[in-house]
Design a protein around this nucleic acid. Sequence first.
DNA 1: CGTCATGTTGATTCAATTCAAGTCCTGTGG
DNA 2: CCACAGGACTTGAATTGAATCAACATGACG
Lengths: 241, 241
Amino acid sequence: MRAATLELEETVCPTLCEACDARGVSICRVLPHPQLRRLAAPAAIGDYAIGETLLFEGDPAAHVLNITEGAVMLSKGLADGRRQVLGFLFKGDFLGLTLTETYGLSAQALTPAKACRFPRASFQRLLRETPRLEEELLSRASDELVSARLHLTLLGRKSATERVATFLGCMADRTATLGGQPGTAHLPMTRADIADYLGLTTETVSRVISALKRQRTIGQAGRGLVRILDAQRLEALAERA
Amino acid sequence: MRAATLELEETVCPTLCEACDARGVSICRVLPHPQLRRLAAPAAIGDYAIGETLLFEGDPAAHVLNITEGAVMLSKGLADGRRQVLGFLFKGDFLGLTLTETYGLSAQALTPAKACRFPRASFQRLLRETPRLEEELLSRASDELVSARLHLTLLGRKSATERVATFLGCMADRTATLGGQPGTAHLPMTRADIADYLGLTTETVSRVISALKRQRTIGQAGRGLVRILDAQRLEALAERA
DNA sequence: CGTCATGTTGATTCAATTCAAGTCCTGTGG
DNA sequence: CCACAGGACTTGAATTGAATCAACATGACG
């Protein structure tokens, strides 16, 4: 699948960026107008359908992307088809930066999504000349590292119930930050995606979620929406580090 | 336990840094003389015994450290005592940088170790004024993220044998890079440390290592030294992503 | 309204853990 | 130098949490 893209007119870009919904939560936030113009000039907006690939593990790392809309899943594959889901990205998240010549992970859209796409070379050039941007990226890398470590602890040392409870708690937090219903977790991914994120099987994820519903810790609030009914109990089950 | 430290005379420091064995592989590598002086001025050298703590999860993040000698283990604890080992550090590795006010992980010495210790505040100041250093740290954070993702894949999706084989392969690579015997893995950590790194128990690690020895894939080459006898087979068992 | 994905639930199996002895080092003090 | 104490490591037997195998339910969509 190939994403529809729209080249931005150089003159139009500052206006577009000005109007961009994700601006305030994206890396662009830290750029003054001249640098923003430099970033935007060679940019394109990618529009991705559900399941579509934003970038693929092993492909030449030609672009970096900034998500402006929708939900995206990051994953890594093993030779025999097993898969580890590494994380979920939303509006304002940045991806695709790497020191190697090829991407080290894949990214695909979980919902219809949009992303601002910058050629890697020009981005690297801007980066080298804009310490404020470097600082922003270091800060984001630092955050990613923190959440990777929590994820490692979850995968290495938690039980199935703890994993699912931790996951639901995190997703509820994320939903709140992104401006959704507080006390609700938006789950745009399938059970298989959750299982590959938590190092479990779909069956186990399903069983644990059913058990949490049975004991009224959570409840269904519509398609892909879980209501946290007993946040305290969920927190206790999660054993968050 | 409190580490013995030696305050550096400001006038002495450039000489000491000049003589530092870890200089060429540390972040200091990228600093021109004036900045190096600024970095070194408030620095202290910490000397740590086996088992001693370099920094502790939850403590105020007062310092950043650069390892100049020995092996260090990073870990994170759960409330009930379970532990996830996050990684192993050696000469030239940097630790302790965080956006939060407290450390998010613990670090302890596996061998007698030395580390250059910088006050966080002055390091941050230097960092903000030295884009080249920021660049270096971003590059290191990027590497750490890559290895964290490999570790996630290992914990989420690999069997016990695959985990141990992957680990031994990585440690052998690391040993070679650090200038040890090629084809040999130096293991300064205990079975319990390895188990907590791989998300297994000591018994399982021991059983898998015994099995690998029985089938002559690896052999013992002294205390904490494993010889890789059949690298190809080990690689195949590892299912490296 | 039927089809095919996705999700749930149950029965059974299995890989790794837990429990339980031992053995092997290594450093220490007689 | 040797005995021995205590931790590290290994091995075996029993147990178990999650995976696998197998239906079946649900629900989104043409």
